[in-house]
Amino acid sequence: MDIRFALETFWSLLAALPLTLELAATSIALGSILALGLALSRLSGILALDLFARTYVFLFRGTPLLVQIFLIYYGLSQFPAVRHSIFWPLLREPYWCAVLALMLNTAAYASEIIRGGLLSVPHGQVEAARACGMGRFMIFRRIVMPQALRQALPGYGNEMISMVKATSLASIITLMEITGVAAKLISESYRVIEVFVVAGVIYLAINFALTRLVAFAEHRLNPKLRAPLPISADLKGETH
C-alpha cells in the first residue's frame, strides 16, 4: 500500500466529509419530524390518518432507496406542472433531491421506531397523569414523550447509522460526498484498495462517533444509568 497516495486520498476525502455530514444531519432532522407525525397518525385512531401512514411506511420500506432517489431526481421532471412550480429551483438541484429522498425514506423507518417507543409507555402512567389533571398536550410533553424517547433511542441510533451509510447513494446523482470522491479517485487511479481503506476508515470513524454520541444521550436520558447526585453539604449537615 502506497502511504503517500493514501495520505493524499485521505485529504481529498476529508474535504468531502462536510457534505456527507450535512446530508445525513439535514435528512435525519427533517425526517424525524415527519416520522413523529407518521407515528402519531398511526396511533391517532383516525382511520384515514392511520391508513395513510400505513401505506406510506409500506411504500417507502418496500422499495430501494435508489429507486426513490431516481423517482425524485429524474422522475419529477416528467411533469410540466412540477417544472413550472415554485419548488423547481429546489427540485432541480441534486442536493435537495437527495435530501428529500433520504428524508422521506428515513421517516418511514423512524416512524416505526418512534411508534414502538410511544407504545412502550405504560397506560397507567397516562391515566395517572390524567388523574393529576394534566391536559393532553402536557401529558404528551411531560410523560409520554420523555419515556418514548428513552425507549426509542437505541433503535433510532441504528437508523442514524444507516442514514450515514445511505448518503453514499447521493454520489449516484452527481453529489461529490465521500463515496462520490472515492469513486472518482478509483476510476482515475485504479488504486482500489487504498481508496477503499481510507474511505472505509472515515465512514467507520463517523459511525463510531455517532454510536458514542447516542450512548451518551441514552445515559443522560436514563436516570437509572446516571450516577446519583452528590449529597450537598447543607443536607449532610442536618444529620448531625
Partner: peptide
C-alpha cells in the same frame, strides 16, 4: 461484522467491481 456494518454498501460494490476487475 463491525467493518461491513459500518461502511456503505455502495463502497463495497465499488471495491468488488473495480478491485475484482484489477
Amino acid at each position: 461484522t463491525t467493518i461491513l456494518r459500518g461502511i456503505p454498501d455502495l463502497l463495497v460494490i465499488y471495491l468488488f467491481y473495480f478491485g475484482g476487475s484489477a
